[in-house]
Simulated assay, not measured.
Amino acid sequence: MKPTPKHNARVAKLTFASVYPHYIAKVEKKGRTKDELLQVITWLTGFDEVKLQQLIDDKVTFETFFKEAKLNPNAKLIKGVICGYRIEDIDNPLTRQARYLDKLVDELARGRKMEKILRTS
Results as ranks from 00 to 15, higher is better:
residue 5 P to H: 12
residue 79 K to E: 06
residue 24 I to F: 02
residue 70 K to G: 03
residue 58 D to K: 14
residue 30 K to W: 03
residue 86 R to W: 10
residue 93 P to C: 09
residue 46 G to M: 13
residue 9 A to I: 09
residue 56 I to T: 01
residue 112 R to V: 14
residue 17 A to I: 05
residue 103 K to L: 07
residue 82 I to V: 15
residue 91 D to V: 10
residue 80 G to L: 06
residue 44 L to Y: 01
residue 7 H to Q: 12
residue 96 R to C: 04
residue 116 K to H: 14
residue 32 R to I: 00
residue 17 A to V: 05
residue 5 P to S: 08
residue 3 P to E: 09
residue 107 E to C: 01
residue 62 F to N: 08
residue 97 Q to D: 11
residue 69 A to P: 10
residue 92 N to Y: 11
residue 94 L to W: 09
residue 38 L to P: 01
residue 105 V to T: 07
residue 56 I to F: 05
residue 91 D to W: 09
residue 60 V to Q: 00
residue 87 I to N: 03
residue 60 V to C: 03
residue 114 M to A: 06
residue 106 D to N: 06
residue 101 L to C: 07
residue 104 L to K: 04
residue 67 K to N: 13
residue 106 D to M: 04
residue 45 T to E: 07
residue 85 Y to I: 10
residue 92 N to W: 11
residue 81 V to F: 07
residue 114 M to N: 10
residue 8 N to K: 10
residue 67 K to T: 06
residue 28 E to T: 13
residue 102 D to Y: 06
residue 10 R to Y: 13
residue 26 K to T: 08
residue 15 T to A: 05
residue 2 K to P: 02
residue 62 F to I: 02
residue 53 Q to F: 05
residue 53 Q to I: 09
residue 71 L to S: 06
residue 42 T to S: 14
residue 98 A to R: 13
residue 60 V to M: 01
residue 99 R to S: 12
residue 30 K to V: 00
residue 113 K to W: 09
residue 54 Q to R: 11
residue 57 D to M: 07
residue 15 T to H: 06
residue 87 I to G: 04
residue 40 V to D: 02
residue 77 L to Q: 15
residue 6 K to V: 11
residue 84 G to R: 13
residue 8 N to P: 01
residue 11 V to N: 10
residue 117 I to R: 04
residue 117 I to T: 07
residue 25 A to P: 00
residue 47 F to N: 10
residue 1 M to Q: 12
residue 88 E to C: 10
residue 19 V to S: 06
residue 47 F to A: 05
residue 12 A to P: 05
residue 73 P to M: 01
residue 77 L to D: 15
residue 43 W to V: 08
residue 66 F to N: 03
residue 74 N to A: 15
residue 34 K to Q: 12
residue 109 A to H: 08
residue 37 L to I: 01
residue 54 Q to I: 14
residue 88 E to D: 15
residue 34 K to F: 10
residue 89 D to Q: 11
residue 13 K to W: 03
residue 54 Q to T: 15
residue 75 A to L: 11
residue 11 V to K: 15
residue 110 R to W: 09
residue 104 L to S: 01
residue 120 T to S: 15
residue 57 D to W: 04
residue 74 N to S: 14
residue 109 A to V: 01
residue 116 K to S: 13
residue 109 A to W: 03
residue 63 E to N: 07
residue 105 V to F: 00
residue 115 E to G: 02
residue 108 L to C: 01
residue 96 R to K: 14
residue 34 K to L: 14
residue 51 K to N: 04
residue 29 K to Y: 03
residue 91 D to Y: 12
residue 117 I to A: 05
residue 47 F to R: 10
residue 53 Q to D: 07
residue 99 R to Y: 11
residue 74 N to M: 11
residue 31 G to Q: 01
residue 54 Q to G: 08
residue 34 K to V: 08
residue 22 H to E: 12
residue 40 V to C: 06
residue 47 F to M: 04
residue 105 V to N: 00
residue 28 E to G: 00
residue 64 T to K: 14
